[in-house]
Amino acid sequence: MARVELAVVDDSPAVELEALDQLWFQVAGTVCNLRCKHCFISCAPDNHSFWFMTREQVAEALSQSTELGVKEYYFTGGEPFMNNEMEAILADTLEVGPATVLTNATLMPPRRARRLARLRDASLYTLELRVSLDGITREMNDAIRGEGAFDRCVQGVETLVDEGFLPIITCMRSWPEHETESYLEGFRDLLAQVGYHRPRIKILPPLLMGEEAKRTRGYDETERVTHEMLHGFDLSQLLCTRARLVTARGVYACPILLESPSARLGDTLGEAARRPARLRESACYTCYLSGAICSNTPSSAGADR
């Protein structure tokens, strides 16, 4: 009797890298000092599935990146400042281009903020600190980010502002969209109390995966990017057409899909830059709807029409 081979056919759309504008580093792996209930990759103190990157690993990618014409560098985790080499890594990066760190700002003693300010002032390029704060009150934030996180984060923001930083406060939207303006007002009031009078605030849509899928709901089956949806769509809105994520073990299509084996596009940056990314995950649907939410500003990516 003939054997029938059953192969899984992946018919999800694939998109090429148009330009490597953004290079992301999973610099703290999945290690974080917090255990947030909405984390899309379930980072935690004991999640060691991805380990810290070394300064040498980052330096090697930085060196390749100048050949590839990278425009911006982003550092994420986990909590980047859990990595002992983070400041040295930033010093290396700021020699070649602008750096953005996605941090919870809870590990921000004044001496560190002072050193970061010195790195910033010594560079031609900007050093952006993007601070995650998920509520305008202690209760609201700590229900998501854990007890004590609010006070430590707000203290961290104050420390950064004292050093002349204008951190970008990012918050996952956990309210109905039409209430956003009143929450923005709440953030402005809160930040003014710690001396931050012209805050930069970025509201992000929720990603219904990892811990957030348990907290609220996961994506349903219809929430997928299909071939039809890409007709006439500006592909540059998708992060994977403009970015790659380097980790301690391999290079991925984007920072959201760290736990999706299919998003691993190669061992090296060169290899991963040549391979197209498949839009097979539900998170791709959020990126499709909202644009490249991971960038500092919408105009970091995106084409004119």
């Binding site: 990278v70 425009k71 390029y125 500003t297």
Partner: peptide, 16 residues
């Protein structure tokens, strides 16, 4: 490449 791309002094690397 894009008429609405911002090229700021502090976000635009020389190699780029």
């Amino acid at each position: 490449r894009r008429m609405n791309e911002f090229l700021w002094e502090t976000t635009t690397p020389t190699h780029f």
